[in-house]
């Protein structure tokens, strides 16, 4: 009898590089360009290495770069350092006040033990289609700062992902997540459908709505685990912007999510279930975000 979920394998040998400054980390990433992985919390990379799904020759540990562990409100931007732990996000008043859906995602992010080490930068760079922090960041039009020895660039998070486990970062270090915070009234909501919270999402969804004169002045909807990467449901958004807030409009738009998603059947769920629950989830999150915006 075999137990496929029990790991008896050890990690294949590698060399560990432990920079203490960003400059050193960038130097290391430039020096060891191939066969290299970055480790932050390690909650994804270590199991992958144990399963021998990845067998890097070099691993650059960035956990000593304490300067990347922060949550700051700078003007109308919320800036989160890449090494900020999920537990820090869970306990941050600034995030709870300005980015409630991200706070909600942190509540159902894996287990307490994982939240104590896993980082938001790691969750993004793992680029899993089901990453729990990502939908909330997408509905805020978040950007990420990528740095290498030649300089830095800031790109929309939406353009960061290129496929399951894939992203545009090459020998770049993701250092910061930048979330624009608007002045007016808005409401957000996040929910994850999963067997239990420590499990990965069957589907997750975040919504952000702004309201003016009983109409949707802005709507953003994002979902995870329904495509090869986390996605925005732009068909739903288009149908609601400038429309009156009522059950009929919300219902009709939620049905349209089917045109935004392309789910697969896998060990966690089926294509049919994911399609059906996505409609329900979008509707519920729209209603909840509206309720919160009106408070």
């Amino acid at each position: 009898m075999s137990y496929p979920h029990v790991i008896t394998k050890t990690i294949k040998e590698f060399k560990l590089i432990s920079p203490t400054t960003i400059e050193e980390a960038l130097y290391a990433l430039n020096e060891y360009k191939t066969d290299t992985r970055i480790i932050a919390g390690g909650t994804d990379l270590v199991p992958l290495m144990k399963h021998r799904a990845v067998t890097p020759k070099y691993v650059v540990s960035i956990e000593k770069l304490k300067e990347l562990d922060y949550v700051r409100l700078v003007g109308d931007q919320l800036r989160i350092g890449a090494l900020t732990k999920i537990n820090t996000i869970k306990n941050s008043d600034v995030i709870m006040k300005n980015c409630y859906s991200l706070y909600e995602a942190s509540l159902v992010f894996a287990t307490p033990q994982i939240r104590n080490v896993a980082t938001i930068g790691g969750n993004i760079c793992r680029s899993s289609p089901s990453a729990d922090t990502v939908p909330s960041l997408l509905v805020f039009n978040a950007q990420v700062k990528l740095v290498n020895q030649k300089g830095e660039r800031i790109i929309p998070l939406e353009q960061f992902f290129t496929g399951p486990g894939l992203n545009v970062a090459d020998s770049d270090l993701l250092t910061e997540i930048i979330i624009p915070i608007e002045k007016g009234e808005y409401g957000t909501a996040f929910h994850k459908i999963s067997r239990n919270t420590s499990d990965l999402a069957k589907v997750n969804c975040a919504v952000k709505v702004s309201i003016s004169h009983e109409k949707f002045s802005d709507v953003k909807v994002a979902l995870g685990a329904v495509s090869d990467r986390p996605i925005r449901a732009k068909n739903v958004e288009k149908l609601l912007i400038d429309k009156k807030i009522n059950a009929e409009n919300i219902e009709k738009a939620s049905e349209m999510v089917i045109n935004d998603i392309n789910p697969i059947t896998d060990v966690r769920s089926t294509e049919i279930y994911r399609k059906e629950i996505s409609k329900v989830l979008v509707k519920r999150m729209l209603n909840l975000a509206v309720e919160r915006a009106q408070k």
């Binding site: 432990s18 480790i39 390690g42 909650t43 270590v46 199991p47 033990q113 994982i114 104590n116 080490v117």
Partner: peptide, 13 residues
């Protein structure tokens, strides 16, 4: 002081 899964932590860290 924080609970962690020791099976996921690199000892060198």
């Amino acid at each position: 002081g924080e609970a962690v899964n020791s099976c996921l932590v690199l000892a060198l860290n």
